[in-house]
Structure formats: C-alpha cells, structure tokens
Amino acid sequence: MESLLSCEFNMDIACVELKFTDGSMIAIDTIAVENEVARNMYERSELDYLIYNDPRGYADIVLNGDPEIYLKTVTEYKPLDS
C-alpha cells in the first residue's frame, strides 16, 4: 500500500472506505465493528461520532489500535439505579 488518497464514510454500504495511491482500497464494515466491540449505547454513539466526523481517526483506531480500550477511555457509563 502506498500513501492514503482518501478516507470517507460511504452511507450506502455503511463502510469507511480508504483509497490508496496504488489503487488498493480497504472498506471497514462499521456495523460489524459496532456489533463486536460496543457494549452499550454510549460506546455505539462514540463510534458513530467518529464515523461521521473523523472517519480517518475511526479507521486508525480499528486498523492500528484497540477499539475496546479506546471506548473504555472515552465513554463514561453510569447506570440509572446507582
């Protein structure tokens, strides 16, 4: 893979698409990622925010980082009964 040309969310197929200068492409299925790593609506909301506002950051977390650790760091979940 060469350098990144574009990174954007394709709403038609619910994927973040990365296109590279050598013609290769990666499509990240955002629904599958949410189903695997998000445990509650707050974590899903955080992933949705990244998908729409920072698709490159989202792709970086999914491909190079650990999305579960990221979600534990940025979301605060407090049950209503506490």
Rank of each mutant, 00 (worst) to 15 (best):
Val16Arg: 01
Asn35Ile: 00
Leu71Tyr: 00
Asn40Gln: 04
Thr21Tyr: 13
Val62His: 08
Leu71Glu: 04
Ile26Pro: 07
Glu36Pro: 01
Ile13Trp: 04
Gly23Pro: 09
Asp81Thr: 12
Ser82Ala: 09
Leu63Lys: 08
Leu50Trp: 11
Ser24Ile: 01
Asn35Arg: 13
Gly65Ala: 07
Val33Cys: 05
Ala59Glu: 10
Gly57Asp: 07
Gly57Ile: 01
Asn35Lys: 15
Glu17Phe: 00
Met25Ala: 09
Arg44Asp: 06
Ser3Gln: 11
Gly23Thr: 03
Glu46Asp: 05
Ala59Gly: 04
Thr73Glu: 13
Glu36Ile: 06
Tyr52His: 15
Arg44Val: 02
Thr30Leu: 04
Pro79His: 06
Ala59Ile: 06
Lys78Glu: 13
Ala32His: 04
Thr75Asp: 05
Glu68Leu: 06
Val16Asp: 08
Asp54Arg: 08
Asp60His: 03
Phe9Asn: 03
Tyr58Thr: 01
Ile61Phe: 10
Ser24Phe: 03
Met41Arg: 07
Leu4Val: 08
Thr30Glu: 05
Ile69Tyr: 12
Asn53Gln: 15
Ile13Ala: 02
Lys78Asn: 13
Ile28Phe: 01
Thr30Pro: 02
Asp12Gly: 03
Gly65Met: 08
Pro55Leu: 03
Glu46His: 12
Ile61Thr: 06
Tyr58Met: 02
Tyr58His: 01
Lys72Ile: 01
Lys19Glu: 13
Asn35Phe: 10
Ala32Val: 03
Glu46Asn: 09
Asn35Glu: 15
Glu36Ser: 15
Glu34Arg: 10
Glu46Leu: 12
Ile61Ser: 10
Arg44Lys: 14
